[in-house]
Nucleic acid binder design. Structure first.
Lengths: 223, 223
DNA sequence: AACGGCGGATTTGTATACATTGACCTGGGA
DNA sequence: TCCCAGGTCAATGTATACAAATCCGCCGTT
């Protein structure tokens, strides 16, 4: 594998896993030494991260890990609704109905998957990723697929803020089942609506869990 | 200005103006010599073009100008509808009503702008770009803005396929006025609908003008 | 004491030399 | 005649040396 690919993958993973937190300065020499590559491939990796929106070039101070927080959540979900509603509608028009019927049933049975054994909920997220992949394949639109891929990178970063509990995931399974079901039925409008419902519910959950712990902006940090 | 920026701007412009046609191989040494820069900044420029989707890295053959044609038009417009409908709706919620009212009137009066003096229709396209910029500012959403910017790069490429005549542009002005008017009225649903109408009409026009002139795929370019 | 200009140090930006990989061509064998 | 193997070559991938720009701290002035 190319050194630039290794550097890119390593840095990207570090950022997605919050080992490199927003605001961290990615010095070329420093990171090149840490990852065991030369500056040239590392610069290419930084350029790709910048294009992804995971990092941003600050004048003078080099490249820094881009900021992401609850303040950006509304914006992110607005884009998400635009893209995923359209994707769901197109999938309903073009998708393989049996595959989505299978996914619908899988989500309907997914309540059992949500156990306390796996604190990271890998099984459920894997199933959700499967739905994403199936939608991607169904829409047959490289431009939309690329936009979705770019979006999901940012969603992966905010997943840490989600704090999904068992109850939320069981509700999400119901919503996902509705989406898959609408696609399986070949109903574009319903698929888009079910997606909108899911996203609204998901966004609301994230905000609610954080309004408990974080003070409202007006009263923030007076101590 | 940095050499890598110059190289990027030059190549991007060459691609957008179809001086570099799809399929052209962008050899590093060749382009570096042509643009008077070294390979290092040129590679950075190629990386950025690849991230933009204007070029693609083909294994073994280096970077080539990415393909775009009528076959991709439907896909491109699907993404366009997803993004621009959402953007119009958000602008209707948040935009400065007076500015969009001004744009609405400008489009309503734009029939006079469409003369035969300017074969490239710069004046009209400038007005359309102004609407885009105003929507961009109104939505206040960096993620959506970036997605729109990425989309517009590809739209600029296919503009060459459009062959807009005076009649079409006058109709487009009516449609644009409807969009700006809906936003000015603060009506998100109508703004989205007017956008969908405009895009459908625009896509249909492009396809119609080309079904006259271009032969079906089977007979294409046997010379 | 505060502000502005200047120098040093550290960083990024560029060029070029070297390594390596993949493609193409040629020659031999089936 | 076709196919495969090997070599050659040209391209990309990497490392490093050098140049340029920017920031920070210092010192002088006001």
């Amino acid at each position: 594998m190319k050194a630039s690919d290794r550097a890119y993958a390593a840095l990207r993973d570090d950022i997605l896993q919050w080992r490199l937190v927003p605001g961290t300065v990615l010095g070329e020499v420093e990171q090149a030494e840490r990852l065991g590559v030369s500056r040239t491939p590392l610069r290419e990796a930084l350029a790709r991260l910048t294009a992804d929106g995971l990092a941003a070039a600050q004048r003078g101070r080099g490249v820094v890990v881009s900021d992401i927080s609850l303040e950006h959540l509304d914006e992110l979900f607005e884009l998400r609704e635009a893209l995923e509603s359209k994707a769901a509608a197109l999938a309903a028009q073009r998708g393989d109905r049996e595959r989505f019927a299978g996914l619908r049933d899988a989500f309907a049975a997914a309540g059992a998957l949500v156990t306390d054994d796996d604190p990271q909920r890998h099984e459920y997220y894997a199933l959700a990723a499967e739905l994403d992949a199936e939608v991607d394949a169904a829409i047959a639109n490289s431009y939309l697929s690329q936009a979705l891929a770019s979006l999901r990178v940012h969603l992966a970063r905010v997943r840490r803020l989600a704090k999904d509990d068992g109850a939320r995931l069981r509700q999400a399974a119901v919503e996902h089942a509705a989406i898959a079901g609408a696609i399986a039925d070949g109903n574009p409008q319903l698929a888009a609506a079910a997606t909108a419902v899911h996203l609204s519910s998901s966004l609301q959950h994230i905000k609610a869990t954080h309004s408990d712990t974080t003070p409202p902006p007006g009263e923030a940090s007076h101590g």
